[in-house]
Design a protein around this nucleic acid. Structure first.
Lengths: 325, 325
DNA sequence: ATGAAAGCGCTAACAC
DNA sequence: GTGTTAGCGCTTTCAT
């Protein structure tokens, strides 16, 4: 049924090793022969078998992206940009949207060249400790774990808080998952606490319980019905910001006239909301490029584990925070 | 470096064929031996090599999802539900977010058991005609192409138009890509034309040019600045609906008081917008289940190609269309 | 119940 | 330049 190089060999009257060389564009094959073989291969509808190839080369040229939480826009944008970067490096990227354990397991068995992990709910220490495949995590760097690219979340939160303070906002709340198990979320929350401490303000919190747009919308709405709303909100992600905004609008509150907003996640989509939303975070292209470069470094220099780094976030001011109280 | 069954064989003093049997839980191996081998394998950190396995079994138990447009929420929800269904069927799902040609190519070389294609911009006839791997498309069924699961788009548009008519809306516009090359979008557009014809109303159009939230927001905003807005809008997808809604709000228009809205895509997220949005479409779980069942059928009954079917859409009325004019 | 050996499709020495 | 061959890690007859 399936065409193999042996079939091509038969059809062209050369040995199958010559076919192999021709297909791999080896200089050891006479151009005419090569040409002829290639044509025949095409004609027969030959599709190389990557499994067989891998078995001898030990390279799949494929990397796996472990991405359990598929519908978070900021990560979707990151995934997309990572994919572009990978293409530039001639690596194929495959995604798995099962939970981290399962995905890592599958990719390991597939023998991808490397893996990228978007950390979310699952604490890193629940993952397999030893792995034969290099894995780079986008999360929170720690010792004795996978190499990790992180973000200086404390600095991000400082930038946001300082901007609010500059605009004379004293009453600042953090909207997001509080006390959850996801390490990126924990880091943001802690960053906020420390940033508020630095300016001697009392940190306020709105617990969303989850990371979906709907979680934020529900919880902010409930909060509004019971408590006095702070004048300034720092949302922990794009989706949280969208949910928060919707809840505010439902209650007739205007942004930035009644409430100022700054969100975490530095992605262009914030410019395209009803009211453009100010944001802090590492620019997504930079994040993508760093992740890809670092992973490829890891693949090509095994053992050379430097445990990762933390990138510098930036503040992008848009309309949602433009109101001096 | 990497542990193979031969290493386990050595460590347990059995032949590697026995190890193979033990690892595959064959009844031909004595329970004690099996147990011992399994323990040793675990201890050594053995990870099966799927490539080698495939080479002999011709099964990867893996299906590939070709999904070029990653940040469309409705498709992201569908992908997620498809993944769940696959898990139930003990199939691993892998995604590729490169363009359709490249993704299909990669999955073919990987010899996945089957492929699922979310059709979008690329017309189906630009894809390879013969494929050794079964491919099921989510798009618009046609003869002489891949088997395809579609939607009765005309009926969907009828449901929407009729609902508007029932609420005394005479001025109805379709918001989406007009005259594009994507077949799903074409089908929606045509469905709208026919549905309007049936009720003898003049079809109006707002061209978004693209499928992103931002495209819709920009174009609807521009439209508003130049033309009189129709009283009722049918948005072609979730993202288009969100963009449209944002543009309306920016212009101070209220939904449904000033404008009524019904969107294509039957996903639960429509209940969680600022104003819950009415929608038509095949319920996403049904769509997911049908796609998975049909693909598995295709894999297990090669040659038995029935060219696909069109599912029945449903109307879900929410607040965005609840205004009798 | 266990082992020996063939072979899946391919690459990479090495020989000619 | 081209052919021969070993072997990658595994499953699967077929012997024992």
């Amino acid at each position: 049924m399936k065409i193999t190089i042996k079939d091509i060999a038969k059809a062209t009257n050369v040995s199958y090793s010559t076919v192999s060389k021709a297909l791999n564009d080896s200089p050891l094959v006479k151009p005419d022969t090569k040409q002829f073989i290639l044509e025949k291969a095409n004609e027969l509808g030959y599709t190389p078998n990557y499994s067989a190839k891998y078995l001898v080369t030990k390279r799949t040229n494929t990397i796996g992206l472990v991405w359990p939480e598929i519908n978070r826009l900021a990560l979707s944008e990151l995934a997309s940009q990572v994919n572009n970067q990978m293409k530039k490096q001639h690596k194929q990227m495959l995604l798995s949207i099962n939970d981290a354990r399962e995905s890592i397991d599958l990719f390991s068995k597939m023998r991808v060249d490397g893996m990228l992990l978007f950390e979310e709910e699952l604490p890193q220490d629940q993952l397999p400790k030893i792995l034969d495949v290099p894995l780079l995590s986008y999360g929170v760097p720690t010792i004795n774990q996978f190499p990790t690219i992180g973000v200086k979340h404390e600095l991000a939160m400082e930038l946001a808080v300082q901007e609010f303070v500059r605009c004379k906002n004293q009453s600042i709340a953090y909207v997001g998952v509080i006390g959850g198990s996801g390490r990126r979320q924990q880091a943001k929350e802690n960053g906020f606490r420390k940033a508020m401490e630095k300016v001697s303000l009392e940190p306020l919190f709105i617990q969303t319980g989850g990371l979906d747009v709907g979680d934020a919308m529900r919880e902010v709405r409930d909060y509004l019905s019971e408590e006095k709303l702070p004048g300034a909100l720092i949302c922990s992600s794009y989706d949280i910001a969208i949910g928060t905004y919707r809840a505010l609008r439902q209650s007739g509150l205007r942004v930035p006239e009644d409430v100022s907003l700054i969100s975490y996640d530095n992605i262009p989509q914030f410019a395209e909301t009803e009211v453009p939303i100010s944001a802090v975070g590492v620019p997504v292209e930079l994040l993508a490029k760093t992740l890809v470069d670092e992973l490829i470094h890891l693949i090509e220099n095994p053992g050379h584990e430097h445990s990762g780094c933390e990138l510098i976030p930036e503040l992008v001011v848009r309309r949602s925070s433009q109101n001096v109280r």
